[in-house]
């Protein structure tokens, strides 16, 4: 009589893209960041890109820890400065696909100036912003996306300044690709991330994500699951919507979809064209020619 054969455990389909040896991760139960990482890992797998040439750059905060869990060349930089670090990296070696993966406080609070200038330059960076409406790592303070009247540890009587409408900010500053989904929309997220990996220019994805531990609990939005259900109910699919109209209010509707997808010459295209035209044969090419493949 032979021993019963155990069915092999199904392999995690995105295992190859993750640093499983770094698990368990630091994120709270019900947090949405891990969900987005799963979506991104799927997008990477499906992209057929040579992952040795894909770099992820994060700033500081809960979302800043994404870089450490992806099995890519990964850089966990300083608070707010992921974009300028990525800018130097992309220009010094344009053959790299450079993804900036960070949170709302990092990218548009302390790093807001870099965000708008990178969009203006239209350097080919893929910027993924986890928006949980709060500074999670430091204990749930109000931030640049906290909606009016929302409670936070530094707005104990309700927030009284309006939050940023991030898609509108990104488009106004010059982004060529702008989309928003929530962590409920896992297939759409992976699809959008895949489109961003192929897009040339400054592309921006806002992901509305639950922070049940701090933002959710304080504002009586329930646990992670309840917040996801809330995102599902409140989401309104609005592909191509004018970004001016997609601001988010506390408990209000969440416009999702791809708002902007246009063509505009990227920073490196314009630079190479202009220097080539002006300097002709004297133009020695940008830094890339001195970095071996």
């Amino acid at each position: 009589m032979s021993a019963p054969v155990e069915a092999p455990l199904a392999a995690n389909p995105v295992e190859a893209v993750l640093r499983s040896f770094r698990m368990p991760h630091i994120w709270c139960p019900g947090c949405g960041i891990g969900t987005t990482v799963n979506c991104f890992a799927r997008a990477l797998e499906q992209s057929k890109l040579n992952l040795d040439k894909v770099v992820v750059v994060s700033g500081i905060g809960c979302s800043g820890r994404v870089a450490g869990y992806l099995d890519l060349d990964s850089f966990h930089t300083t608070h707010g400065r992921a974009i300028p670090f990525a800018t130097g990296m992309k220009i010094a070696n344009p053959k790299l696909t450079v993804v900036v993966y960070s949170g709302d406080g990092d990218l548009v609070g302390i790093g807001g100036n870099h965000f708008i200038h990178a969009a203006r330059r239209n350097l080919d960076l893929k910027v993924i912003c986890i928006n949980n409406f709060t500074y999670g790592m430091t204990g749930g303070q109000m931030g640049p996306t906290t909606p009016v009247s929302a409670l936070s540890s530094t707005t104990p009587f309700g927030c009284f300044e309006p939050g940023f409408n991030l898609p509108h900010l990104a488009e106004s500053a010059g982004a060529v690709y702008v989309a928003r989904w929530t962590t409920y929309h896992v297939r759409q997220l992976a699809h959008t991330m895949g489109e961003m990996l192929r897009k040339n220019g400054f592309s921006f994805l806002e992901i509305i994500s639950p922070c049940p531990t701090l933002y959710g609990q304080r504002n009586r939005l329930g646990d992670g699951l309840a917040m996801m259900k809330h995102f599902k109910q409140q989401s309104v699919l609005r592909h191509g919507a004018p970004t001016k109209e997609v601001g988010i209010e506390l408990q209000g509707p969440i416009a999702v979809g791809k708002f902007v997808d246009i063509e505009r010459p990227s920073f490196l295209d314009v630079m190479n064209e202009q220097l080539g035209r002006t300097l002709e044969a004297e133009y020695a090419g940008c830094v890339k020619d001195h970095v071996p493949d």
């Binding site: 670090f85 130097g88 200038h117 020695a284």
Partner: peptide, 28 residues
Amino acid sequence: PLVGGMFLQMEDELAASIAIQGAVWAGA
């Protein structure tokens, strides 16, 4: 541009001092 390099004018010194480090890790 004549010797295979480039200057990038950044939005502030915070950006400039970290952009160079991104470039270094890319090989420059």
